[in-house]
């Protein structure tokens, strides 16, 4: 039951992009086309789950026993940055097709606050490792739903007769606002 609540909450009620504002940069940046949105979702899911596991282990087995919790920010960002680099190298060697599909998005992920945000939230909500992994997967699904829906909307926006001053980013932001309003309908579900 606990697990179910985490999943529903992370995907719909507290959607990571539209309700918590994590990962807005890729949300605005790569949502112009449906195919890039799907690719970005794949890369984010992959890195988010693995980064959450690694940072959880560091927090529990290094930072807490040595009581150096104040190094959390520094160590987490370094681990995530190193980790993304490593994933890129391994992927290039092991699976070139997957690297082709996700490769261009990987460097962008280091400064994606959704990754760091989910790692920090896992610690803050004092989840155990299993709950942390489920939380990370659900958050990534939530990210995917939001960005793919938004990419679909933006592809249609291009064909609309938008007033001159609102073209481009302003109308995209207003559309995102309306999408967020739709997601507010889920509040109270859990």
């Amino acid at each position: 039951m606990e697990i179910f609540a985490i999943v529903i909450s992370a995907i719909l009620v507290n959607n990571i992009v539209l309700m918590q504002f994590l990962g807005i940069c890729p949300f605005m940046g790569v949502s112009k086309k449906l195919s890039t949105a799907v690719g970005m979702t794949g890369a984010v899911t992959f890195v988010m789950v693995l980064a959450t596991i690694v940072t959880y282990l560091i927090q529990t087995y290094v930072l807490e026993p040595l009581s150096i919790g104040y190094l959390q920010t520094i160590s987490f960002i370094l681990v995530i940055a190193a980790f993304v680099q490593m994933v890129e190298i391994v992927l290039k060697k092991v699976s070139p097709p997957l690297y082709q599909a996700l490769g261009v998005f990987l460097p962008l992920i280091t400064t994606n606050c959704a990754i760091m945000g989910v790692a920090l939230l896992t610690i803050q909500n004092s989840y155990n490792l299993m709950e942390g992994i489920i939380f990370a997967i659900s958050s990534a699904i939530g990210f995917g739903i939001a960005i793919i829906l938004f990419a679909g909307i933006r592809e249609h926006l291009d064909l609309m007769g938008v007033p001159k001053g609102m073209r481009g980013t302003p109308i995209a932001l207003v559309a995102a606002g309306i999408l967020a309003m739709a997601f507010m309908g889920f509040s109270g579900l859990v």
């Binding site: 539209l18 309700m19 504002f21 001053g165 609102m166 980013t169 302003p170 109308i171 995209a172 932001l173 207003v174 995102a176 606002g177 309306i178 967020a180 309003m181 507010m184």
Partner: peptide, 14 residues
């Protein structure tokens, strides 16, 4: 609430 942030920023940028 959350949706207002997007909408106000959109109009301010315009």
């Amino acid at each position: 609430l959350a949706p207002g942030a997007f909408i106000v920023l959109g109009y301010l940028i315009a």
